[in-house]
Structure formats: C-alpha cells, structure tokens
Nucleic acid binder design. Structure first.
Lengths: 261, 261
DNA sequence: CGCATCGGTTCATTATTTGAACCATCGGTT
DNA sequence: AACCGATGGTTCAAATAATGAACCGATGCG
C-alpha cells in the first residue's frame, strides 16, 4: 500500500460518532505504527486536512476539506452527477431512468435519461410534479420520510391517477414497509397506464431522504428477470449517487453491509 | 517534502477557473515528474479524492471530499456559523460579505453572502485564492501573523493585480500597522478594479489568526458614512464569529511564540 | 508523412518511510 | 510519594517505497 493511500485511509476513521481521534487511537484503528501515524497526521495537518483540538491534542478534520468540497460542487453540480448515474442506469437496464427531488413538499422530476435500446419507451419531462402515493419514487421517499411528514401526506385526499392507483392509506403503509425491507419501491401503472417503475431513495448529508431515482419500463416488457436486474442496478446506482451527492445512507451501519456487490 | 504532502499539494492546483487538469499539465503545475504525478493521482483516485472524466481522461476532484466536508461541518459547524454572520453583515451593509481562511499558507475564500439591495454588487467565488498583499482580508491577516511568517510572505515577489495594488513591503508594513491600530483593514481596487473592501481578522482557540471576513462594495458606492458603518458592523461581526468558532481574540500582550517548522 | 503532444508504463537508482525503543508528562492507585 | 499505565511525541539504522529518464502506443495537426 502506498504512503498516500495509507495517509488518506486515516481520514476514513473519522465518522459521525467518532469525530475526533487521538494519536494512539488512530494508530490502533488504522493498524499502523504510532510513529507512522504521527508522521502521516503531521503531513495531513500541514495541508489542513486535519487539525488538533487545543485540549487533548486530539485530531479532527480540518478546513481544507471545505475548500475542496466547495470546488467539487462548482465543478460537478448535482445535475451532472445525476446524469452520469442515470445514463449508466438507462444503458444498463435498457429502460428510461430519472431522478426526482423533494422541493418544498412536492416531488419534482429533475433529470432523466432515456433508453436508446427500444423503439417504445417511457418518456419523461423534467420539472413535472409526481404524486407520492402513485409513483415508485414517491413511495420510496414516503417510506424514508419522518413519520410526521409521511402521515401528513397520507392524510390528504389521494387521487387515483389510474384504475390501478393505490389510494388506501393502510395499503400504502404496508407498501412502505416493503420498501424499507427491500430497499426499492415498485409501482405498476399507478401514475400512468402501462408504466412499470422501480425506484430507490436518495439521502442527504444528514441521512434524510432528499429524493429518488427510478427506472420506468413499459408493462409489456417487464419480466421477473428484468425486474430483478433493475432492482440490483437501481440499488447500486442510488447508493452511488447518494455518495456522490455527499449524502450518507441512514441506519446503524453507514458504509458496509449492502447486498449489492 | 513528504510524499503525502506532495500528493495533497496536487489538489491545490484545482481552482475555480481550472477545475479539471490533465496528467501532463498537473506534472508541470506541481513541478514533479510525470510518472510521479501519475502515481500520486492514481492513489488519490483510489481514495476517491479525484476522478477522471471519461472524455480526455482529465482529473477533477472526486466525491470523497464531499463526505469529509459534511463530516467536518457536523464536527465544527463553521460554515453555518459564518453564513449566519455573513448574511447579517450583507443585510446590514447592503454589500457583499465573505469569509476567507488560511489553508496551508494560502488564503482561500470559503463562504460568501451576496447583498440583495443593489443591482450592481461585487460577486464572489468560493474556493478561490486571494493574495495577502492585494486584498483587505489578506492585509488584516498579515497584520496579525507572527513576524516570521509575515516576513516570509512579504519577501516573496508581490504581484500587482491592478495598477492600484501596493507591492512595496515598506508601505505594506505601514498599512499593517494601521490595521493593528484600527482593527480593520481597507483595500481599494488592489485585487480587482473598482472593488472597495474592508476586512477584519478571525482568531482561533490559541489566539492565532485563522482568517478574515470582509465586506466588498463597488468603489462608486463608497462614502465616508458607509465606510464608517461597515467598519463598525464588520468589527462586531468578526468578534462575534471568532467567538462562535471557539476562538479567542489576542490579548493586550501579543505573545506570538510557537514552534513552526 | 513527420512532428509534437497526450496518458500511461518500466526499472535501476535513490531517498523516504518504517518501527522498536525511547522520552517526558499526565492521572489514578496504592 | 512512589508506582503504574496510559498519553503525545521523537530517534535512527534497516527496509521499503518513491523517483525520473526513457519508452510505448495513440491521437491530433500542418
């Protein structure tokens, strides 16, 4: 392992529940000699990547990361990040992919990538408003929203966009539980007829849901194999996009234990 | 220079006007062998600190910095604190306010708040690098830096950004003395033409200067009354922000003694 | 075609990293 | 007070990793 990689790996040990680390602790956590940890931390310190608290001389992340993050944001705006992921998702699944974000209590489609593989495909408009109860994306978000907010939405009159739309709050809550269990949401023709969509949630830095990405296919083309493939790709894509957007998935285990390889 | 420092210094060459850099360019910019640059960038790539654009295989900042910045903010909510103060300052003065921090010997703009009162206003980029001698913020910091560090900076070639820029070390030292006397620094068109800026220093826990906040107005709008108003608001804001960041202003006895390599 | 550039790779030379042992210091315990 | 087990920080010979000139194939340009 190169020295640079080793130094940067030290930074991985800073996590929300352990934001400051002493020298000896760091050496133990990273499995390196104390002298090595000291030298690496000193170099990170000089570069502003870590700083020391006056009290116990413990180390914590430094201000340099703020500059880099600001520049990263300026370089790769959210939209472009999403486009990369959605294009790959559309390419991989052969179907239309899109991202929707929570904006002022409404769910708005923001970016989309159309499949190029098939003659018939689901088409999308950016900036259109989706319903929470009638779409895969909405359900994925609903399932990860704080109880109070979800309850508010479910207590409003729920319109049946098609004959297939589920509007019974009790049934919707059951679907939400399924989403939390499986990680992905499914919706068949609940918003537009003949559209079979899968969706997975996106999370912000505070582990709160900020939106969702979805893959929408014509019902006629859906098979168990394709559905399985979409679910796997979608889960991985959502996780990657959450990361690229600077977010953190919720749950006790932040970085590990996901079923996608 | 250690390898880690060298690798991290590569990241310094990403700036707002040059967000992506090719391998050869990076080697030239950083003054290292191309093979070295390649190896360092590869390690940074593996750690997610940079990524490559599909097209020309140029490098740009990667998503890892977002996670670190989010965690840094969770640990030390500097950005949020600064934003509060800067917004109030911008509102109070009707002009653009921004904060810059010392990072690895350079002065980097970190947060800004634009005025909403006027049609014309000074605009800012986060993460751009300011000169010490050519800006109000730089001067405010220079005036409170330990003698040795200030001398080092003043001994380097000082670029004249505009015809107005003061580059004579003797005159700069006189200005620094003024800053120490009055508590605020002033700069008129020394960095960008037609920008009239006031600045005040920020201090860290050990009473060392860590950065500055500034108010930048178009020269045409500046009056003695406005300048006086800005100076008062700025001084109060700087003091308040220093406090919120857990810093302490230097006491009557300027005990600037430390062991910097 | 020739020339210049690009990203990436190789390998003998060289300089940096490494880690066991070492301080001085700090808080508890006896 | 003496002791103990921590801590952050430092030293130096030995081992390892970094270095850079030269090279490769690809691409772009007149």
């Amino acid at each position: 392992m190169g020295t640079v990689t080793k130094a940067l790996s030290l930074l991985d040990h800073f996590i929300p529940v352990r934001p400051t680390i002493g020298l000896s602790d760091m050496a133990r956590l990273a499995g390196v000699n104390k002298a090595t940890a000291y030298r690496l931390l000193s170099e990170l310190h000089d570069a502003g990547f870590v700083e020391q608290t006056g009290a116990a001389r413990e180390y914590r992340l430094g201000p340099a990361v703020l500059r880099l993050a600001a520049l990263r944001e300026a370089t790769v705006p959210m939209r472009e990040a999403a486009l990369d992921v959605l294009r790959e998702l559309a390419e991989d699944t052969g179907e239309t992919a899109h991202m929707s974000l929570l904006q002022g209590g409404r769910l708005v489609t923001t970016v989309h990538a159309l499949s190029t593989r098939h003659g018939t495909r689901v088409t999308m408009d950016d900036a259109s408003v989706l319903s929470f109860h009638g779409t895969g994306s909405g359900l994925a978000i609903l399932a990860h929203l704080p109880d109070a907010e979800a309850a508010t939405i479910l207590s409003q009159p729920l319109r049946a966009h098609t004959p297939e739309t589920v509007t019974d709050p009790a049934r919707l809550r059951a679907l939400m539980a399924d989403v939390r269990r499986s990680g992905t949401a499914v919706n068949i023709g609940g918003f537009e007829k003949d559209v079979y969509s899968h969706a997975a949630p996106l999370f912000g830095p505070d582990a709160r849901v900020i939106g969702a990405i979805a893959v929408a296919a014509p019902v006629a083309r859906m098979t168990p194999d394709l559905a399985g493939h979409i679910r796997v790709s979608l889960a991985r894509a959502a996780q990657g996009l959450t990361e690229r957007l600077g977010g953190t998935p919720p749950g006790p285990l932040a970085t590990t234990s996901q079923h996608a390889a």
